[in-house]
Design a protein around this nucleic acid. Structure first.
Lengths: 195, 195
DNA sequence: CGTCTATTTGAATGTACTCAAAAGCGGTGG
DNA sequence: CCACCGCTTTTGAGTACATTCAAATAGACG
């Protein structure tokens, strides 16, 4: 039994796959620990996303800026989640995104080469990510569906129910963007919802 | 070298991972071949999605019907793609979706148990699906983003460019649903686009 | 040829948008 | 401790895009 206090990553990996003690040390030695201050960027457009990040504690958003200069948020991630631009990370081509800390954030990171090595060393890690991506894919399909066919107010209510913490930790402007609406619309929706 | 003519699944697996001859036969023996007629269902709501499907030739759509009785299409898949309700398949709980053949379709399928076995027997298959889900996840994020922030006409044009075949093989009503708009709106967009 | 379904067109409606401005809130420095 | 500044959130007015509902037209298939 690994507790989150000992090592968060190992704890969460073990939720999904069985690994040996050797696997554990192989995994642990493949990651580096680091931290970043609020409002600082882990990645800016044009750079290659050299690392995949696992957030130990903090908050990170991934967004891009469109032709008109408007920000659009892909996702907002908290403790015990992965962050990074997968597309750039796996292709090792320049990213289109900003990855920014919304709070002072502690994380661990792994480079592409090191991760590929780890996949070979520890096949269970392949499986771990297979399961993770599978879940991420299903969740994103659901989010897509909600965005297509549910009115914004329902999406807001769902978010309030599923991620009440967000509203404590993230400015409403960002939540609006994540929900696919403007800050003004979110404000009006909230007003309507409180009456 | 495996050509698509010999075995399509093996050909596409080899595009992403290295497998031995033994792996090949293990994979092949895990799948059953079958076919289904146009307009028939592989899955209806309430049923557990017992299989994951790889389409050899044909076309399959996944959709659900909302409270108001309106159909919403999650995806439309052609030859050499996977289909199935992943959520139900992996949890083995009842599905909310219809999976329907839009053409006479040949496919191979694998059950959950057999696939879990295969993951143990052939670790490369874990990796194959890791890569597949990873790509599916990134693609779905892009589709989500387009739906949130791009006008319907741009999404239509993109689809016309990326999947011109769709328009040959799939009724416009379904394409509209896939794009997240009503058939009426798609009709008007097409009219505007041709002027 | 007739029937059923898919597509188009029309008119009215609604939801979320843009642009502009006011109000609220938090932190900093005098 | 208060005043000021910058940023977030709210409010208002006008607009646009896609929707709903209804009906007409076009196409596919037996």
């Amino acid at each position: 039994m690994t507790t989150p206090e000992e090592n968060k990553l190992i704890y969460y990996v073990k939720k999904w796959v069985n690994i040996t003690k050797d696997d554990e040390s192989a995994i642990l030695s493949a990651f580096e620990q680091a931290s970043i201050r609020k409002k600082k960027d882990l990645l800016v457009p044009g750079e290659i996303c050299k690392y995949n990040y696992f957030i130990i504690k903090g908050c990170i958003r991934t967004y891009y800026i469109d032709d008109k200069g408007v920000e659009h948020i892909y996702h907002i991630r908290f403790d015990n989640n992965w962050a990074g631009d997968l597309e750039s990370f796996f292709s090792q081509k320049p990213s289109k995104y900003y990855i920014e800390a919304l709070e002072d954030t502690q994380y661990i990171r792994i480079s592409k080469d090191r991760l590929d090595q780890l996949y070979d060393e520890v096949p269970a890690f392949d499986r771990y990510f297979r399961i993770l991506f599978q879940k991420a894919y299903v969740n994103t399909l659901k989010r897509l569906n909600a965005n297509m066919w549910e009115p914004a107010i329902d999406r807001y209510k769902d978010m309030l129910k599923e991620h009440p913490d967000m509203f404590q930790r993230v400015p409403l402007t960002y939540i609006a963007s994540y929900l696919g609406i403007t800050p003004e619309s979110l404000s009006r929706i909230r007003k309507k919802n409180n009456q």
